[in-house]
Design a protein around this nucleic acid. Structure first.
Lengths: 342, 342
DNA sequence: CTGAAAGCGCTTACAG
DNA sequence: CTGAAAGCGCTTACAG
């Protein structure tokens, strides 16, 4: 802020154009309500003086900041970076600006950030996933700040969601894996505590096991934070078992790339010796060799639709409708079809 | 914002505590100026009513938002994502919130975003690079919004910078390449127009050529936006020349990964048939095979230091001091030492 | 130490 | 279509 004494105000513009401040305000906010001749004169004065509305005053009078807050686990994972970029672009197209904070996957930090963004006047909030303390939603409701959960899709919840069904998607991928003849399945999952996307992906694998009459409890599952190195370590520990898996399904592509590295370090060939799958379909999945079988998530589309849904909630004060996006299987070289006889 | 009719104001607190609004305000902002007895009474009322100061009113009266704006080319490139994440964390540690926008490497969009963030009350601004219309700096100066340029280091410029010397770094890398015996050098650069980092990297290569008595004008240079696919296409066009280069130096790692893909598609082995270098040292550089020789840039440190320098400028109203960080060579398998006889 | 009051720069019913 | 004026909820000299 730091307004200089020299920064022009609405009043200066009004005086310069020979109209009232109300008219200048209208020219800026609902130009169609001002007759063209007047409007032109006013806009010229705005130009000449280099006038920009004072933020604080505008917020105070209008009770809106045209600012939307987003709290994501981290910008360093390409999936959020890409979605957030699209979210910001869509916001900008509709005249909104993005306020960003990150939670490092920690509920306490997320709550703190929610309060910080609300205190900064966010007109609406984008959060990732739905699994959080109900008190958070009460807090937001009391201040009537609309919230939208993205990266998940859950029909009929309390909050609208824009995303895809993590559980169903992982179930479909696991079904494919099973169809390919794999029976000894291992999993490397992200930390499921406080992360419904991770938990749902695990549930999806279990669903597929049940569907095929397999014992889900036999699946060894290692939970570890989403870092390449952790994927490598977890992979090696899974493969050290007496009867190692024929396929290691990972909670996301970052872990899968780590698993791939782990395999290379152990001298194992993928997919000849062991298959690996990921989730998200970030660019990385197609850059490594072999390319990783994964679930494609429409990150950019998700970001864009989330922005639109959230702005609708803010502007129309509507409850907001959930949007389901489709995540699709991407079968690539890292998954071997065991039925195929060479 | 969207204040409910039920949200309590300073006035409500004052009435409830039987004091003036001035006293309540003092209790909140400079408690030492209020005698304990009064203060306790006031704070009790604040508690009971669940009072939170109104953002807009506070901003308007105090002329500060505790918000810092950042405009980066895109969040999708890992180098900015990582630096921005660190920037945001450092901001949060000092009580500030981050307002983000992206420019897609387009000056016009950047200018628009600068205005948008200033209009949203950013107390200070982080921009990438220094190469922009002087009018932009005039605009910012007129509103006394401190600006800091990151990802570049230039001593003695008008604006403080927090970054490294792109030109010197590329020169050092090119010197290494030349020391390894390479003479036929080709380059794939990002678009240099309006991107001083890209332009400096090209200049660095030319410097090294001069240093070694080589003709810099002989170096074929292709400029293309930072996308993997573009790197592949540019690489192939360089290699199609009658006397193709023995090494292709890329403006960043994204282009280098593209070049690697291009080589694979052409059936060329790296580094046996041709060497490739990158810049930035993003995670990708170590994930591909062969690993890419590049320049390591301390992204996180840069983000953190930029946040600290910028907050100092905002709070102390100081001119701000530039900080130079060190970028270091990372020699990896993608660069062949032609002198080494097997 | 505390209060009355001006002022921050807008927006928006309400008139005309 | 345009204007006068109230009001948004704070902070801060200025008095006392």
């Amino acid at each position: 802020m730091n307004n200089q004494p020299s920064v022009p105000t609405l009043d200066d513009v009004a005086r310069s154009a020979g109209v009232s401040t109300a008219t200048v305000s209208r020219c800026l906010n609902s130009p169609e309500r001002v007759v063209e001749k007047t409007r032109k004169r006013v806009m010229r004065a705005v130009e000449e003086l280099g006038y920009t509305p004072n933020f604080g005053a505008r917020v105070m009078a209008a009770k809106r900041t045209f600012t939307i807050g987003a709290i994501i686990p981290t910008m360093e994972n390409a999936i959020f970076a890409r979605g957030l970029q699209a979210f910001q672009e869509a916001l900008h197209a509709r005249g909104y600006t993005l306020l960003v904070a990150s939670s490092a996957y920690q509920p306490k930090i997320e709550e703190e950030q929610i309060k910080a963004l609300v205190a900064r006047g966010a007109d609406g909030l984008l959060l990732i996933g739905q699994d959080r303390d109900p008190a958070v939603y009460d807090y937001l409701r009391a201040r009537s700040v609309p919230v939208l959960s993205a990266w998940v899709y859950m029909a009929g919840g309390d909050q609208p969601t824009v995303g895809f069904d993590n559980r169903r998607s992982m179930r479909a991928l696991a079904q494919q894996v099973i169809d390919f003849g794999h029976r000894r399945i291992g999993m490397i999952s992200g930390i499921t505590q406080g992360n419904d996307r991770a938990a749902e992906r695990v549930a999806g694998l279990r669903d597929a096991m049940h569907d095929n009459g397999l014992d889900a409890d036999q699946v060894p599952i290692i939970e570890t934070p989403y870092e390449i190195e952790n994927g490598a370590v977890a992979f090696q520990s899974l493969m050290d078992a007496p009867s190692p898996p024929s396929v290691v399904m990972c909670g996301n592509d970052v872990l899968a790339v780590g698993a791939l590295r782990g395999a290379r370090e152990m001298g194992l060939s993928v997919p000849e010796d062991v298959s690996i799958t990921g989730f998200d379909d970030i660019e990385l999945a197609r850059i490594v060799t072999p390319q990783i079988t994964t679930v494609h998530v429409p990150h950019r589309e998700m970001g864009r639709k989330a922005a639109e849904a959230l702005i609708d909630m803010v502007e129309k004060r509507s409850a907001g409708a959930s949007v389901e996006l489709t995540a699709s299987l991407q079968i690539r070289d890292s998954l071997k079809d065991l039925r195929a006889k060479p």
